[in-house]
Design a protein around this nucleic acid. Structure first.
Length: 478
DNA sequence: TGAAATGTTGGGGCG
DNA sequence: ACGCCCCAACATTTC
């Protein structure tokens, strides 16, 4: 019997899937498996309904892909090890193949699986798939993992020729008939989702999104990506999170566009986008090589910062009631759509940590509970960067001014007004700091019919004051 | 992948 | 004509 279980986790596609294509080199008798894992669903509070929704949509698409080529995706629910035991017994498979993961809990689980089933005589193999370079493939001259992005990026680019050519989806395989659950919904999984997601799951959708980005948007990526009112970003984050697209495929196509780029801006657009993918690899290898970052600041000197951690400020931040329009609009975008523009993620993270003086881990967890693309490595890396506690973090004294960030990146308040309808009548001049209407033009407030402090909150803090407090907090920790 | 504070320069008003 | 002051614009330093 030459039957291989291909255990899907965050690689919900059949094309250019390393574990699957390796299995197919040995047999066409494939048992594609996905486990709705109680290990995760029951015990973690950092997995979002939005993620679950994207995942279930992606599983439907994956299921259809397998059916098209003669196979069948087997869905099961339970604890990982128990389900794997069942499936191994029922299918009489000789091997389990999967794509490796870099989160501490997942690594522990996978080691467990390798140990357990190797002992039972199965062949268990883990493949690199979600990253282009991972683990310790790129090391400094001293033989240590990189902790600074720029030299990491240089090393990454010098090895770019090693990235394997993507493998097309298989044409045919067969799956033995064993029991499979019907696709489960958000409600059935205990994660009811009320958000209106901007992106749909599934690799069919991922490919569509990618094609659109590469043909229409990547050329102006550098110019437009910082403006949340514009559609300048790739919107591929959730697809990358669940592996509904192959990152190798993205890089290969981006680089081939680079070869025949006509203008300098076009080149820079493509390079900037690839650079973002390098950040993604960078944070995978940080989490893998320095797993302490999951729980603690990377910088030892910043592990005992005296955060104020005021609950009332945290609530105001979460629900977009801080009185800083750009922050509030951003948080409402997150709450209602499960996604937030990258520039805004930096603004709200700086605001939470350096204006509200709240521990970055509170924000990190809230993002994981709300984001459709929540990925531990990237989310943790981003938060630690913003909080100045991480590898290659911004210096602690680099503190965003929420109002000037707003003026710079949402100059007409178009994004703000899209998510804060109560401010629609506020003129451009005041949209970034509406409370100034009270001091500078009290008549205007009546004219536009808005009562500040009631219809929209007054600023809950004074940026200049909080900035000084943040500087003092960091200085005393040093 | 900042912002604020401080320093420098140069033009224009003015005695 | 000249020095002085003011201040905007820009540059540099500091947090």
């Amino acid at each position: 019997m030459n039957r291989i279980i291909v255990w899907h986790r965050r690689d919900l596609r059949t094309h250019d899937n390393t574990a699957l294509s390796n299995a197919l080199q040995e047999t066409t008798d494939i048992l594609p498996l996905f486990i709705f894992a109680d290990d995760i669903l029951k015990q973690r509070d950092d997995f979002s309904p939005a993620c679950v929704k994207f995942m279930t949509e992606s599983l439907k698409d994956l299921s259809a892909q397998y059916e098209r080529i003669g196979g069948k995706l087997i869905l099961r629910r339970g604890f990982f090890l128990e389900v794997l035991h069942e499936v191994v017994r029922e299918s009489e498979a000789r091997a389990i193949y999967f794509n490796e993961d870099y989160e501490p809990a997942a690594k522990a689980r996978d080691n467990d699986v390798i140990q357990t089933f190797t002992k039972l005589g199965l062949q268990v193999r883990a493949f690199k798939d979600q990253a282009l370079f991972a683990k310790q493939e790129l090391l400094t001259k001293q033989g240590k993992p990189y902790t600074v992005f720029t030299p990491y990026k240089k090393a990454w680019l010098s090895q770019v020729h090693l990235i394997p050519t993507p493998i097309p989806a298989p044409k045919h395989l067969t799956t033995v008939a064993i029991h499979s659950l019907p696709p489960l919904s958000n409600d059935e999984l205990g994660f009811p989702c009320t958000q209106q997601l901007l992106v749909k799951g599934g690799s069919t959708e991922g490919e569509r999104q990618l094609a659109q980005f590469l043909s229409n948007k990547i050329h102006r990526y550098k110019e437009l990506r910082d403006f949340p009112a514009l559609d300048g970003t790739s919107l591929l984050s959730a697809h990358l999170r669940f592996g509904t697209i192959s990152v190798r495929e993205i890089v290969r196509r981006a680089l081939s566009l680079l070869e025949d780029a006509k203008s300098e801006t076009e080149k820079i657009g493509i390079e900037t986008f690839v650079s973002e993918l390098i950040w993604r690899d960078f944070y995978f290898q940080i989490l893998d090589n320095f797993p302490i970052v999951e729980k603690e600041s990377f910088q030892p000197s910043f592990r005992h910062l005296q955060w104020e951690n005021r609950d009332d400020y945290f609530e105001a931040w979460k629900f977009g009631r801080t009185g800083f329009p750009i922050v509030d609009a951003a948080m409402r975008q997150l709450n209602t759509t499960g996604w937030m523009h990258n520039r805004l993620r930096m603004i709200v993270a700086s605001f939470l940590t350096k204006d509200l003086l709240i521990d970055w881990r509170w924000g990190e967890r809230y993002f994981m509970q709300m984001l459709v693309d929540g990925d531990m490595a990237a989310n943790n890396g981003g938060w630690q960067w913003s909080a100045s506690t991480g590898t290659d973090a911004q210096p602690y004294f680099r503190i965003f001014n929420p109002t000037s960030q707003s003026q710079k990146f949402d100059p007409h308040g178009k994004f703000i007004k899209a998510f804060l309808p109560e401010l629609r009548a506020v003129p451009e001049k005041y949209i970034h700091a509406p409370h100034e209407i009270l001091q500078k033009s009290p008549l205007l407030a009546r004219e536009i019919g808005i009562e500040l402090g009631k219809d929209y909150p007054l600023p809950i803090i004074d940026h200049a004051v909080q900035r000084e407090k943040a500087l003092a907090m960091f200085k005393s920790a040093k």
